[in-house]
Simulated assay, not measured.
Amino acid sequence: MEYTIIDAHAHLWLRQDTVVDGLPVRTLENGRSFFLNEVRQMLPPFMIDGKNTAEVFLSNMDYAQVSAAVITQEYIDGIQNDYLSEVASRYPDRFLVCGMCEFRKPGFLNQAKELISKGFKAIKIPAQRLLLKDGRVMLNSEEMMQLFHLMEEHNIILSIDLADGAEQVPEMEEIIQECPHLKIAIGHFGMVTRPDWKEQILLARHPNVMVESGGITWLFNDEFYPFKGAVKAIREAADLVGMEKLMWGSDYPRTITAITYKMSYDFLVKSSELTENEKHLFLGENAKKFYGFGVLPTLPYIKNMSE
């Protein structure tokens, strides 16, 4: 069975050089980065220059037959707006890119206006990073609500990762009530391995809200492939809100330090816990409709030398 596959959660950057919670994130060599207080394998070791480029990702996408991807952002990678604007310009049929503002301090509304004027179709908020030591940035603050009304007016998609559990869910409920036409994608499958994860999933009961599974193989890394716990969680989420509200995401490239890119979805293709129709919806059809992708390339299967 052939599927239209769209990755709803991936990352690109040229170099990591930033600070999060007062601690550095710096690109090293051989795919490693100094991450907060230790050296971590941020990329596969063959990406020796530390560059996580669109071209390398496209090679992975073509091999894995992934037609398109949503490029999100996170503060641990630094703000990548300039590079992602170039990526969107070069590969408009393969990537939808999210802009990101400096939401950790006031003044982000004007930044968002600039991103919208430059043609960004989505904005990312790594909301789990807003629980700052010197004061929490509330998602329902006055400036945030102005931002969400602006995005709703201009049909800009909100991509957002929430803190573990239900901590930010009441704020999201207020945003959804205030902006019923704001399209929202909840990331990391509600931080599925943490307590109260289903409270985030239940946000997708609202018509304008979807949930994507970026990072689900990371969250179930301890059990590893074929990630039976992840399949079970997807089944549970579908029972709560319907499979038409869920989308596949990989969290590329960090997750492919442990598995290949194709493995980040083929455990679902091979699962008997999902119907063929559910697989089609989850792996690409839902994302195609939600993000508004147009005609997608047909990618042939290339036989491996080991076959």
Rank of each mutant, 00 (worst) to 15 (best):
Ala122Gly: 11
Phe148Pro: 10
Ile71Gln: 06
Leu109Pro: 00
Asp239Leu: 08
Gln73Lys: 12
Asp17Cys: 13
Gly78Lys: 11
Arg40Phe: 04
Gly165Tyr: 05
Gly31Cys: 04
Gln128Ala: 09
Phe220Gly: 01
Gly31Glu: 00
Phe148Ala: 10
Ala238Ser: 15
Tyr261Pro: 00
Ile175Trp: 10
Ile184Glu: 02
Lys270Tyr: 02
Arg104Tyr: 07
Met47Leu: 14
Glu212Gly: 00
Glu273Gln: 12
Met191Cys: 13
Val39Gln: 03
Arg129Pro: 00
Met263Ala: 08
Gly294Ala: 09
Asp164Asn: 15
Arg205Val: 06
Pro300Ser: 10
Ala127Ile: 05
Phe189Asp: 01
Thr298Asp: 13
Cys179Tyr: 04
Thr298Ala: 12
Glu167Asp: 14
Glu167Arg: 14
Gln73Glu: 13
Leu109Phe: 04
Thr18Gly: 04
Ile216Val: 14
Arg235Lys: 15
Lys133Pro: 00
Phe290Ala: 01
His149Thr: 15
Leu132Thr: 06
Leu296Lys: 12
Gln200Val: 06
Thr260Val: 02
Val20Gln: 11
Gln146Cys: 07
Asp251Ser: 10
Arg26Lys: 14
Ala163Val: 12
Met144Phe: 05
Asp251Cys: 04
Thr260Ala: 01
Lys118Gln: 14
Leu131Trp: 07
Glu307Cys: 10
Glu276Met: 14
Lys105Pro: 00
Ile76Gln: 03
Gln200Glu: 10
Pro126Lys: 08
Ser272Tyr: 10
Ala233Asn: 12
Glu38Leu: 05
Met47Ala: 10
Asp62Gly: 10
Pro24Thr: 07
Lys51Pro: 05
Gly190Tyr: 02
Lys105Gly: 07
Met47Phe: 11
Met263Val: 01
Met191Glu: 08
Tyr261Asn: 05
Ala88Arg: 09
Phe34Lys: 08
Glu244Tyr: 07
Arg26Phe: 02
Arg40Trp: 11
Ile302Gln: 14
Val97Lys: 01
Phe227Trp: 13
Ala54Arg: 12
Arg32Phe: 04
Leu109His: 02
Thr217Asp: 01
Ser85Ile: 02
Thr27Val: 01
Leu158Lys: 09
Asp134Ala: 11
Val19Ile: 15
Arg104Lys: 14
Ala64Met: 05
Glu86Met: 13
Ile201Tyr: 06
Asp17Phe: 11
Ala10Asn: 06
Phe46Asp: 14
Lys262Met: 13
Gly107Gln: 06
Phe34Glu: 08
Arg32Met: 06
Ile79Pro: 01
Pro24Leu: 03
Ile201Ala: 06
Glu2Tyr: 11
Asn286Gly: 06
Leu115Lys: 10
Glu38Val: 09
Phe189Ser: 04
His9Leu: 02
Lys279Val: 05
Glu212Ile: 00
Asn221Pro: 00
Gly292Ser: 13
Gly50Met: 01
Phe293Val: 07
Thr4Ala: 05
Glu285Lys: 15
Leu281Trp: 02
Arg235Gln: 15
Asn60Met: 06
Glu74Ser: 15
Ser213Trp: 00
Ser306His: 13
Val20Ile: 12
Gly50Cys: 07
Lys232Cys: 00
Glu171Tyr: 01
Gly22Met: 02
Leu158Gly: 07
Lys121Trp: 03
Ile79Thr: 09
Ala166Asp: 14
Glu102Phe: 05
Cys98Met: 07
Cys179Asn: 10
Leu12Arg: 12
Thr4Leu: 12
Leu240Lys: 04
Leu240Cys: 05
Ile184Lys: 03
